[in-house]
């Protein structure tokens, strides 16, 4: 009986080890995400993010991402780019790149692919976008400051068509992030109007950067446009180099008090030493 239990134990132990090994050899699942971005300086790029499932999904660095331009019939390799520490690979879209294929009704289709390696599975993802644009204009009537944003897209024959019914968000550029102050859907002319808040702080001259954005749209990706206006409340410039208890230099009253006190005391010490010398000399004269 004992030996049976022993055998069972051994078998189960072996089984555990083997299954563990099988699991250890199992490849990790990878996912690749892709977004289209158009910056305020009209630069366009694709950002692919490679993530791998550990306990949860984490970025994978130094993985090779293949960027393709895709049509119904063809698939052209545009570039291979390594991911950075955040798992991101950036492909810059040049207008004059002959490899990029324009699809029907102005739609561009891209594909990003990660081919995988011995421990990580392959992954790919497609993205289809239309190339749009945002135009920001600023108006001021009396004390009312308003912003007009018009959204347009480029049609098949390079004609410009207003985008209707797309959400446009408005932000002020902060130190670390964008501070939202408005959101509206475009009308049939692709236009929105938003009033600018009256109490937004600017820089020392009141200048601030206003950002209009189509954010992560299915058709248009992320499009950003921005402009600088002196619509903010000017802030006080920070004064450096003061004198105070908490500063490098002491307040003047403290400096003077200390000098007066110490010189009064130490002058007397010197005087005492002078008198001691005098005691010695006085006797010498006898």
């Amino acid at each position: 009986m004992k030996s049976v239990i022993k055998h069972i134990l051994i078998i189960s132990l072996v089984a555990t080890i083997t299954t563990d090994n099988i699991f250890a050899q199992k490849k990790k699942t990878a996912r690749v995400q892709v977004g289209y971005f158009k910056n305020y300086d009209k630069a366009e790029h694709l950002v692919a993010t490679l993530i791998v499932k550990e306990k949860r999904y984490v970025p994978l660095s130094n993985g090779v991402i293949h960027f393709y331009s895709v049509s119904d019939t063809s698939r052209v390799l545009l570039s291979k780019i390594h991911t950075d520490n955040d798992g991101k690979a950036v492909f810059i879209i040049n207008d004059d790149n002959p490899k990029i294929i324009k699809g029907p009704s102005g739609v561009f289709t891209f594909e990003v692919e990660y081919e995988g390696n011995s421990s990580v599975n392959a992954a790919k993802r497609k993205i289809a976008i239309k190339r749009g644009d945002l135009e920001v204009s600023f108006f001021q009537k009396d004390s009312t400051k308003s912003i007009e944003v018009s959204a347009t897209e480029i049609g098949l024959n390079d004609q410009i068509i207003p985008i209707e019914g797309v959400n446009i968000l408005l932000y002020v550029q902060g130190t670390f992030s964008l501070l939202n102050f408005g959101k509206e859907k475009t009308d049939e002319n692709g236009i929105i109007h938003i009033d600018f808040p009256t109490d937004m702080p600017g820089d020392t001259t009141g200048v601030l950067t206003i950002v209009a954005k189509i954010d992560d749209n299915k058709t248009f990706g992320t499009i950003e446009s921005r402009g600088e206006m002196n619509w903010g409340i000017p802030i006080e410039p920070v004064k450096e180099k003061q004198r105070g208890l908490g500063d490098t230099d002491a307040p003047l009253w403290m400096v003077y008090t200390l000098i007066i006190l110490l010189s009064a005391v130490w002058f007397h010490y010197l005087y005492v030493i002078f008198l001691i010398v005098k005691i010695k000399l006085v006797n010498g004269s006898i």
Binding site: V272, I279, V282, N283, I286
Partner: peptide
Amino acid sequence: SINWHGTPEQNNILHKVSFMLSVMVIPV
């Protein structure tokens, strides 16, 4: 002992210094 011979002049100086220091040492 800096040539101390207890002359009146030396004594005078000594008393002066001694008094001065006695007063000064209190605040210090």
